[in-house]
């Protein structure tokens, strides 16, 4: 009984971590747009290259935040949640 419950729990935690990383789509699209526009801007005004590049990297780093939240949720689900939930399961089954 405990083995079955543990197996279901670990499988669902893995699935949840995978689903959490769907959050990576948004920053990918957003950063792609940002870099495309930065390339256009550099093509139009090559003398502003350093300013545009630093601003773009700054913006990319900020746009990355939502993806990193998803990553942190996934890491918590894989590394931290099994320990917590195993204790709860053992208590519940006993």
């Amino acid at each position: 009984m405990l083995e079955l419950a543990m197996g279901i729990m670990l499988g669902l935690l893995g699935l949840g971590a995978g689903c959490a990383m769907i959050a990576g789509i948004g920053p990918g699209i957003g950063e792609g747009n940002a870099v495309a526009k930065a390339c256009e801007a550099i093509g139009r005004q090559p003398e502003c290259k350093s300013d545009v590049t630093s601003t773009m990297i700054m913006g990319c780093a900020i746009a990355e935040t939502t993806g990193l939240y998803g990553l942190i949720v996934a890491i918590l689900l894989i590394f931290v949640a099994p320990g917590t939930f195993t204790g709860i399961l053992k208590e519940a089954i006993k």
Binding site: A61, I62, E64, T65, L68, Y69, L71, I72, I75
Partner: peptide, 10 residues
């Protein structure tokens, strides 16, 4: 905090 931590940890 999460941005810095998440980038290095990943």
């Amino acid at each position: 905090a999460f941005r810095h931590y998440g980038n290095i940890l990943s």
